[in-house]
Design a protein around this nucleic acid. Structure first.
Lengths: 192, 192
DNA sequence: ACGAAAACTTGATTTAAATCAAGAAAGAAT
DNA sequence: ATTCTTTCTTGATTTAAATCAAGTTTTCGT
């Protein structure tokens, strides 16, 4: 608990500077969680009550279209995770969140986070800049799926997140890159 | 100027509630702009100094890969426009912003907006919730390009933004939907 | 440790959409 | 108004990647 709070603090302080009292109010609201492998963290249609910060493990996020799963991202130790729109807008989730490994960390409830936004300017800033960084990442992702070929997307992932190949089954990575598992396997053979 | 400020006020007040003094400080920083048709608002590699709110006209945003233009969005009257990451991070833009018609409205400078974030909690909230709404929109866009066929994306646009067909040349819409102009033309024939 | 299930590979075939090409229509400029 | 340029349409061909299929390897559960 101490250690994960330190990880979170580092993350928060990179974009906002709460004082001791504010940090105190903030950390009080985060509670530990722990899930088995392949645990369904958030179900389809569920209103997401939690926003997560991962200490250990990997969480996969995906949506389903015509019975097919489409991965939209993976979260690891030292990162946030959650169904963003369901959590923030408190509406039924179109996404599923599932652990790929045993996963633990801390999480905060919607109804505990909102008062922090209301009471403290510094957490509004944290929220603004957190959103901003996700937004910039989405922009890059969109560019990549619009303009890059399957091979380019594969190579980009290879280069930027080589660790991911160890953590995530490649059928999920294939889906994440918007290509079939077979195509992914062929790319892999080509470049490894 | 009066009218466009009212449009902006409506937009701001839908997510944050500045008081009179705060609103005063905010509006003082927005200055009118006016561009001809096909005006290059933001160039590649330029650090974006402005964030825009459009009163009249249409602005197109795109990036370039191997000499080909990829449209990522269009903005109209009553909406914000800008190169988000270049503006917010004050780094060289990977995007181009260009008017499709004569366009006018108001805009705010980076160095005028930042002090508003620093001084007023209410504008941090506005920024957070603005980012949030863009984020949710990006999420839907990503889902669509990952999981929907060209025809589905065409029909979705048809249904949700029929007005856009009047405002934007269809080669740009094709690019926006991630398909060739020829494919777009064939979809159009099929469903109209 | 064993068998079952899931994940991965590899080749053959199909398909959605891109590209190529050339003419028609619409808009802009003089 | 007429020419020039850009945009749009339509058909023929190509291509990147999906799908289908079947075998192999890895992982999981008991």
């Amino acid at each position: 608990m101490e250690e994960v709070l330190q990880q979170l603090e580092k993350k928060v302080r990179s974009i906002a500077q709460p004082n001791d009292q504010e940090w105190q109010a903030f950390t009080q609201k985060w509670k530990p969680f722990s899930f088995d492998k392949n645990h369904r963290v958030t179900n389809l249609g569920q209103v997401e009550p939690y926003f997560y910060f991962i200490s250990e493990g990997v969480i996969r996020g995906y949506f389903i279209k015509n019975g097919e799963e489409f991965n939209i991202g993976f979260s690891y130790h030292g990162e946030y995770s959650g169904v963003y729109d369901s959590f923030m807008l408190q509406k039924p989730s179109q996404y599923v969140l599932e652990t790929l490994t045993e996963t633990s960390g801390i999480r905060i409830k919607y109804r505990d986070l909102m008062p922090l936004f209301d009471q403290y300017k510094v957490f509004e800033r944290w929220g603004r800049l957190f959103n901003q960084s996700v937004l910039v990442g989405f922009g890059i992702f969109i560019q990549s799926i619009l303009a890059d070929s399957a091979e380019e997307r594969f190579n980009r992932l290879m280069q930027q997140s080589p660790h991911i190949f160890q953590l995530v089954p490649q059928k999920h990575l294939a889906s994440y890159l918007g290509m079939s598992a077979e195509t992914f396997s062929r790319m892999r053979k080509k470049t490894m």
